[in-house]
């Protein structure tokens, strides 16, 4: 991906992420999230990671945020009121944010950038990804699926108890 293209997509990603946290209507927040995730998928595409890009869309944009929207619509959430936050708290939060941003910037500035290396032909494809996943990274992969299973069972148990 060329630099100008990357900058455009990166700016759009940040803008939609801002919509998620700033907009007062929960539906628009969820849509901002969809847009963020979709644009992230485009950035992955720019990094030649086709498989990750498509999975990003299927799993996050196509399924998880749809569930968010489903819940928002089911609960019929209204436009949020702006909460009254004490001024000192705002000042502290702003200072913390600026400090964090500065630290990240310093970190980036101090890291020497390696010259770009051309990726090899099958990089980011389905086969190499699957092969790594099921050989080198088999244990973390299986552990993750176990973790997800535990989470699902937990969710069912919590739901049952309430009913």
């Amino acid at each position: 991906m060329s630099i100008p293209l990357f900058l455009i997509f990166a700016a759009l990603t940040v803008a939609s992420a801002l919509v998620v946290i700033i907009h007062r209507n929960p539906i628009y927040c969820a849509l901002g999230l969809v847009s963020t995730l979709f644009l992230l998928a485009l950035l992955f595409l720019g990094l030649e990671a086709h498989m990750v890009a498509v999975l990003q869309i299927i799993v996050y944009a196509g399924a998880i945020v749809v569930l968010f929207l489903f819940v928002i619509m089911l609960l019929n959430l209204q436009v949020e009121e702006r909460a009254m936050v004490p001024r000192p708290l705002i000042a502290v939060a702003a200072a913390g944010g600026i400090l964090l941003g500065a630290l990240v910037l310093v970190g980036i500035a101090q890291t020497p950038l390696a010259a770009p290396v051309p990726v090899h032909a099958d990089y980011g494809g389905t086969e190499p990804l699957a092969e790594r996943l099921f050989t080198t990274y088999l244990l973390p992969f299986e552990l993750t699926s176990l973790l997800l299973l535990v989470a699902i069972v937990g969710a069912v148990v919590v739901g049952k108890r309430r009913a």
Binding site: I27, L31, V34, H50, M51, V54, L55, I57, I58, A61, G62, A63, V66, L69, F70, M73, G125, T126
Partner: peptide, 25 residues
């Protein structure tokens, strides 16, 4: 001709739901 082929169709199909949800809301 995409390497991910059929997954791309799944991705597009899964995005189709937004039209329904947004129209409804």
């Amino acid at each position: 001709s995409l390497d991910v082929g059929i997954l791309y169709i799944l991705a597009m199909a899964s995005l189709g739901v937004y039209g329904v949800v947004l129209a409804g809301w």
